[in-house]
């Protein structure tokens, strides 16, 4: 085992996919944003100069090109940049890519992969900090992938680019530089298979993306007080591995769901509803949701910190869940 950053694993996945499948191409000049990892994509341009495109600032147009190209047999990876900009491509995501297979009675496919950098990245203010994938979860027809580690990013991207369905891949901007363990030979990871990132008897915590390392930090602190957290990372929201989540709750009897999307109609809400509906008998206490409040994201640091889930807030929520019931 060695360590690799999320960003490096993402680039490895793209490189390997392009090498193994000539239909794969990249529409997006800044797949890793403008941060220190951005130069990692240089080797994609060097090795596949005809298959990496720097598009204009045209989120809707770029997304549509990806959708149309995928209908015509290609496997484009379309980077939408900062996730907040995906709203400009909403029609292409939710009303073209997501519905094409259904609307043609299964005769046409749109195997496009979209990527965007989501989340409270630090100083992004309201318009560069959003996590739109909860909204996309309400658009049937899109697979949604939210990796939390380098190995998961690699494996899930390989699966996304091989998937016959349109896939939305979200990477948290703060995950890009985080290094995690990877095996020598990274491999594809099937969708719909949750990963238990930490075993524990006392409480089930469900989280994706950046909230996974935050939850691990919280779990270490809690372990010092004898509280053992079981951390379930669904990895893909569509398809969702409900079975693993409910089985974990059946062992612990308690559930805390952590997510950076706002509370109302959000990811934590949907997972909580699923467990309440299908696993109520296992619950010893009310489900707790840790999310952003229903406000836009402010710029100034104390304001931003106040609205963003962090390890301390997660630990406090877990303690609360253990006291209740």
């Amino acid at each position: 085992m060695s360590k690799q950053s999320y960003a490096a694993a993402l680039v490895d996945a793209l490189h390997d996919a392009m090498r193994s499948d000539p239909r794969v191409s990249i529409i997006g000049g800044y797949v890793l944003g403008l941060g220190p990892q951005r130069t990692l994509t240089d080797r994609l341009k060097q090795d596949f100069p005809d298959r990496v495109f720097d598009p204009p600032t045209s989120e809707a147009g770029n997304a549509a090109v990806g959708v149309g190209a995928s209908m015509a047999g290609m496997r484009p990876f379309v980077d939408l940049g900062t996730a907040s900009f995906s709203y400009l491509a909403w029609s292409q995501l939710t009303n073209e890519a997501a519905v094409a297979h259904y609307m043609t009675n299964g005769r046409l496919t749109a195997p496009v992969t979209f990527h965007m950098l989501h989340g409270v990245r630090g100083g992004g203010a309201a318009q560069h900090s959003q996590s739109p994938h909860a909204m996309l979860w309400n658009a049937p027809g899109l697979e949604i992938v939210a990796p939390s580690t380098a190995a998961d990013a690699y494996g899930l991207i390989r699966t996304a680019l091989a998937s016959p369905n349109p896939t939305m891949l979200v990477s948290h901007a703060k995950l890009l530089g985080i290094e995690t363990e990877v095996s020598e030979k990274k491999s594809a990871i099937p969708f719909g298979v949750a990963d238990i990132k930490r075993r524990g008897r006392d409480v089930t915590v469900v989280a994706t993306s950046l909230m996974v390392p935050y939850c691990l930090t919280a779990a270490e602190a809690l372990a010092k007080d004898g509280i053992e957290v079981e951390l379930v990372d669904p990895r893909t929201l569509v398809p969702l591995d409900e079975k693993t989540i409910i089985e974990s709750v059946s062992r612990t009897g308690r559930l805390v769901v952590v997510d950076e999307c706002p509370l109302r109609g959000g990811i934590a809400s949907e997972i909580a509803a699923t467990v309440a509906e299908r696993g109520f008998k296992h619950l010893k206490a009310p489900i707790v949701r840790v999310t952003r409040p229903d406000t836009p994201v402010p710029f100034s640091l104390p304001l931003e910190n106040f609205v963003t889930p962090d390890p301390e807030k997660i630990a406090a929520a877990v303690r609360g869940a253990l006291k209740a019931g």
Partner: peptide, 21 residues
């Protein structure tokens, strides 16, 4: 390609078709 009922959908999807070509 998928027949879009959004009036600009056709033009934009066709550019994707052209990209594939």
């Amino acid at each position: 390609l998928s027949t879009s009922g959004v009036v600009g959908g056709c033009i934009s999807l066709a550019v994707g078709g052209g990209y594939a070509c």
